[in-house]
Computed example of a mutant assay.
Amino acid sequence: MGKHPEKYKVRLLHQLYPDGKIDVAAEQKLIEQYDKVVFQFPFYWFNCPPLFKQWLDEVLTYGWAYSSNSGYKVAGKKIVLALSVGIDEHECRSEAKYKYTLAELTRPFELTFEYVKADYRPFLLIMALN
């Protein structure tokens, strides 16, 4: 059971921060309240949307998310990516059109969350219909 009384909370970064000015302290406090976090976003151009990349850069700070001797407020939290993609599943293989599997393409996220000692879990895939 999570530390927060709500079972889940949905937040849309583009609605919360239309000006791109992320409230880092509020985001960190919110992450601290949950044991499981799902980041859902469209995976396009083999990456995440710019605002989520900015969120990662600004929220996962030294001294909070990682450090040489303390920090690690994300440590042990289960992290899952829920990706929506606009390609056919059969194209996501090493011998297919895009040459890499989605697991390989999302490796930077896996490494990021492992670096902050989170419990990174396999991503969920939402295939967009053409």
Rank of each mutant, 00 (worst) to 15 (best):
E58D: 12
E6P: 00
I79E: 05
K73F: 00
K77S: 07
V74Y: 06
S70V: 02
Y120M: 13
M1C: 04
S84H: 08
A75V: 02
G76Q: 00
T106N: 09
A103W: 09
Y115G: 08
E110F: 05
P18Q: 10
E58N: 15
F43A: 06
P50A: 15
Y8W: 14
S84G: 11
S68A: 12
D88N: 14
P50H: 13
A118R: 10
N69K: 15
G20L: 05
E89L: 15
G71V: 12
R11I: 14
V24T: 10
V38R: 14
L81Y: 03
D23K: 03
V59C: 06
L111K: 14
A65N: 03
L129V: 04
Y44S: 05
H90Y: 14
K21Q: 15
S70M: 04
K117S: 10
E95G: 10
R107N: 09
Y98T: 02
W64I: 01
G76C: 03
L124H: 03
W45K: 07
R107K: 15
K29Q: 13
K99W: 04
Q33S: 12
L105E: 07
P50Q: 12
F43V: 09
D57G: 06
W45H: 05
D119G: 06
V116D: 01
I79T: 07
R11L: 12
V80T: 15
L102E: 05
N130H: 12
A118H: 01
I79Y: 08
I87R: 02
K99T: 12
Q15W: 01
K3M: 00
Y66K: 13
L51S: 02
R107Q: 11
V38C: 11
S67P: 01
I79P: 10
K7M: 00
Y72T: 06
K78A: 14
A103I: 09
M127F: 08
G86R: 06
W45P: 13
Y98G: 03
S70F: 00
K36A: 01
H14N: 15
V38I: 15
R93M: 12
Y8G: 08
E104H: 01
E27I: 10
Y34K: 07
S70T: 04
S94M: 12
L81D: 04
E104C: 14
K36H: 09
A103Q: 07
F41T: 12
V80K: 15
K3H: 11
V37T: 14
T101N: 02
P42E: 01
S67F: 05
H4C: 10
T101W: 07
D35C: 00
S84T: 15
H90Q: 11
R11W: 02
T106F: 06
W55K: 14
Q28F: 01
E114A: 14
F39V: 09
S70K: 11
